[in-house]
Design a protein around this nucleic acid. Structure first.
Length: 593
RNA sequence: GCGCCCGUAGCUCAGUUGGAUAGAGCGCCCGCCUUCUAAGCGGGUGGCCGGUGGUUCGAGUCCACCCGGGCGCGCCA
C-alpha cells in the first residue's frame, strides 16, 4: 500500500477532477441555450496553457446551430453558471471558451482531495470480471528478456483494473505441455533420480539445452521422447509424476523471480496449457458440430473469414494436427471458452507480443463463430513491441545469447546501488540495499511502461537509471523529498496538516494542485485504453510541478502557520498521488534515497 | 503477394482520440545552493511531424496512394 499514507480516516468526499464539475454546468448551459437535443454534446473540456481549461464545444456545434463559432460560444457562456467555480470565462480565437478556476474553489477541491484515501481513483460505473493473461513463462526454462514486457505490463494493468473496481482474474498461461516434455523426461530418466533431485532451479535451462541437443543428435533418444509425449498426453501416472518434478521446480523458480520483481502473480494464478488438455477433444468436436471445420492435409482446420496466406488462399487455424495432437490454437480456444463460461469474464486481455496479432485475431474470430465469445464479453490482444539492443536489433548479450531475467535484475539493482552510494553516502548499509532494490527494479519496470507499449523500445541502462527526465528514479526522488520534509517538520504541524485547509496562493501551488486532481481521470483512461504510459506521463507532470513548487515555495519556512500547514498538506497529497500511481505501475516509492 | 504495426528536435520519447504558436528529457550554451534532498529549479539552442493528395472552420491526429523499417502468413508456442 501507500507507506506514506497519512490521510484522515474518513472516506466520503471523493477527489474531484474539475472537469467532472464543469461538464454538468456545460450540459445545463447547452440545454438552456440550444435545446435538449444538443444538451448532451461533449463540451470537449481540455487542459490549456492559456487558461486552466478550455471548452471547444462551440466550434463543434457551429455548423449544427448555423451560427459563427464565436456567436455560439457567446450563447453558451451567457447561459453558463460557473459562479464559485471559475473566476474568468472568456472567448478566444475562433471560438474557444477559456476557463480560469477560482483559487478558492481549487483550494477547496484540493482540500477535499487530501481527505480522500484513494487520491481520486474511484470505481468505474460498470465494473466487470476481467481476465488478464500475462507473463506466461515456460516450464523448465529460465525467464528471459522476452518475458519482461508481458510480465511488467500485465501486472500493471491488473493493478489498475482492480483499482477501478473490477474483479481481476490473473492467469499465468505457462508453457507446461507439449513435445518438449518428452525429451525432458527421458533426459531426466537417463541422468537418474539422484541427479534429478540435485537439479537446481536455475540449472533447468542448461538441462533443457542438453535434452535438446540429445534430441537432435540421437535418433533413438528422439524416438523415446516421442513415445514419452504420447504417454504423458495419455495420462500415464508414472510419467505425470516425472512431469510434475519440472512444473513444481519451475513454479518455485517463477515465484522467486516474481517476488524479486514485485509482481502480483502467485501459484494460484498459474493455469498452464496442461490444464486445458482434457478439454481439447470437446473443443474440436464442438467446432465440427457447428460446421466450422474442414479437414485439410489431414489436419482439422477452421477457416475464419478475412485471413489469407502467401498464395492468397484461405488461412487455416489448425485445431487438430495431422498426427491427432493439439497445437496452441486449440489450447487458446479452450482457455477462451473457460474464461467466458467458467470464470464468467466479460473482458479478456491477452498481454502477448505484437507478432501474435494474427493468431489472436483468428482465435477470437473462431470463438465468436462458435458462440464462445459474444456481447457483452470481448477479447483484446494487448500487444507490445520488442525490446531492442543499442543496435536496434533484438536485445541480446554481447555474446549473442539470450539475456536472462535474473541477470537483468541483478544488474539493475547493482547499478542502482552504485548510484545511491554516490548520491547519498550517508545512508546506512541496510537502507541503501533496500533503496537500491526499489530504484533498480523501478527503473527496469518504468522503462517498459513509460512509452507506448505497441512500439519497440531500445534498452539503455544509462537512460533508465538516470535520475532526470521521465524515469522512475525522478518520481521516487520527489516522493523522498516530501518524506524528508515531514521528517524535519514539527510534530504539531504534521498532525495539523492532516486536517489543514489547503489554501493556494502562488502560481506554483495552483499548478501543482490542478495536476494532483487528475489522477482519477488518468487511471480510468488507463483502464480503458490499457496504456500504462499515460499514467507515467501524468506522474512525471506531477513530479515536475512539485519540483517547481518546492523551489519557489518554502514549506517549513512559510511565513505563517496556516500556510506552512497548507503546504505540508499539499506536499503530502503529492507524495500520496506519486506513491499510489507508482504502486499501480508495480513500483515502490522509498521514503529516502 | 496479402495482412498488421511503426516513422515527430542530433539521440530517446510524449502529444489527452480533430483544436490555438507541435511538447519533455538527454546533449550543447547561460544563470541559481549561508534556507525543507542541486538526484533539483529557471532560461536559451534545436522541427518540411517520412512524402503527396484529400476530407473541413481547423490535420502530427481521420481517409487514399506512395517511400522507408519491423513482424506475421500450415501442423513450434
Amino acid at each position: 500500500m501507500v507507506d506514506s499514507g497519512r490521510a484522515p480516516g474518513h472516506l466520503g468526499s471523493l477527489m474531484a477532477d474539475p472537469r467532472t464539475t464543469l461538464e454538468p454546468r456545460f450540459e445545463a448551459a447547452l440545454r438552456a441555450a440550444l435545446g435538449d437535443e444538443l444538451a448532451k454534446t461533449d463540451p470537449v473540456i481540455r487542459r490549456s496553457d492559456r487558461a486552466d481549461f478550455q471548452a471547444d464545444v462551440a466550434m463543434a456545434l457551429a455548423k449544427k446551430v448555423g451560427k459563427p463559432p464565436r456567436d455560439v460560444a457567446k450563447l453558451i457562456i451567457d447561459h453558463l453558471d460557473v459562479t464559485g467555480i471559475c473566476d474568468k470565462v472568456e472567448i478566444a480565437g475562433p471560438g474557444f471558451i477559456n476557463l480560469t478556476l477560482s483559487g478558492d474553489w481549487l483550494s477547496r477541491a484540493t482540500t477535499d482531495a487530501a481527505r480522500d484515501l484513494h487520491c481520486g481513483v474511484s470505481p468505474s460505473k460498470a465494473p466487470e470480471t476481467v481476465v488478464v493473461d500475462y507473463s506466461a513463462p515456460n516450464v523448465a526454462k529460465e525467464m528471459h528478456v522476452g518475458h519482461v514486457r508481458s510480465t511488467v505490463i500485465g501486472d500493471s494493468l491488473a493493478r489498475v483494473l482492480e483499482a477501478v473496481g473490477n474483479t481481476v482474474v490473473r492467469q499465468n498461461h505457462v508453457g507446461d505441455w507439449g513435445t518438449p516434455f518428452g525429451m525432458l523426461i527421458e533426459h531426466l530418466l537417463d541422468l537418474g533420480e539422484e541427479a534429478a533431485l540435485a537439479t537446481s532451479i536455475t540449472d533447468l535451462d542448461a538441462f533443457y539445452k542438453q535434452a535438446r541437443t540429445k534430441f537432435d543428435e540421437d535418433p533413438a533418444f528422439a524416438e523415446r521422447s516421442r513415445q514419452r509425449v504420447v504417454q504423458l498426453q495419455g495420462g500415464d501416472e508414472q510419467t505425470l509424476v516425472l512431469w510434475r518434478r519440472f512444473t513444481d521446480a519451475s513454479k518455485r523458480y517463477f515465484g522467486a523471480v516474481y517476488d524479486r520483481l514485485g509482481i502480483t502473480l502467485k501459484d494460484e494464478h498459474v493455469r498452464g496449457e496442461s490444464f486445458y488438455n482434457p478439454m481439447l477433444p470437446d473443443i474440436v468436436r464442438e467446432l465440427e458440430k457447428k460446421g466450422l471445420t474442414e479437414v485439410s492435409d489431414g489436419a482439422v482446420c477452421a477457416f475464419p473469414d478475412g485471413f489469407s496466406n502467401k498464395e492468397g488462399a484461405r488461412l487455416p487455424l489448425i485445431v487438430r494436427k495431422q498426427d491427432g495432437g493439439y497445437g496452441y490454437a486449440a489450447t487458446d480456444l479452450a482457455a477462451l471458452l473457460s474464461r467466458t463460461r467458467d470464470l464468467g469474464a466479460t473482458r479478456l486481455l491477452y498481454v502477448v507480443g505484437a507478432p501474435q496479432q494474427q493468431h489472436f485475431a483468428m482465435v477470437f474470430a473462431v470463438a465468436k463463430a462458435a458462440g464462445w465469445l459474444h456481447e457483452p464479453a470481448r477479447a483484446e490482444h494487448v500487444a507490445f513491441g520488442s525490446i531492442l539492443g543499442p543496435d536496434k536489433k533484438m536485445f541480446k548479450t554481447r555474446a549473442g545469447g539470450t539475456v536472462k531475467l535474473a541477470e537483468l535484475l541483478d544488474e539493475a539493482v547493482q547499478r542502482a546501488a552504485a548510484a545511491v552510494a554516490e548520491k547519498n553516502p550517508d545512508l546506512d548499509e541496510a537502507t541503501r540495499a533496500a533503496v537500491a532494490r526499489k530504484i533498480g527494479v523501478g527503473a527496469l519496470k518504468y522503462a517498459d511502461l513509460s512509452s507506448d507499449r505497441v512500439k519497440d523500445y531500445i534498452f539503455d541502462w544509462d537512460r533508465m537509471l538516470a535520475f532526470e527526465g521521465n524515469t522512475a528514479a525522478y518520481l521516487q526522488y520527489v516522493h523522498a523529498r516530501v518524506r524528508s520534509i515531514f521528517r524535519k517538520a514539527e510534530a504539531a504541524d504534521v498532525e495539523a496538516a492532516k486536517t489543514a485547509d489547503i489554501v493556494l496562493r502562488e502560481p506554483a501551488e495552483h499548478a501543482l494542485a490542478l495536476e494532483l486532481l487528475g489522477l482519477g481521470g488518468v487511471v480510468a483512461a488507463v483502464a480503458e485504453t490499457l496504456q500504462p504510459h499515460r499514467l507515467c506521463t501524468y506522474l512525471f507532470a506531477v513530479a515536475t510541478r512539485f519540483n517547481t513548487f518546492f523551489d519557489q515555495c518554502s514549506v517549513l519556512k512559510a511565513e505563517d502557520v496556516a500556510t506552512r500547514r497548507s503546504r505540508l498538506a499539499l506536499a503530502d497529497l503529492t507524495a500520496r498521488v506519486l506513491a499510489r500511481g507508482l504502486d499501480l505501475l508495480g513500483i515502490e516509492a522509498p521514503d529516502r534515497m
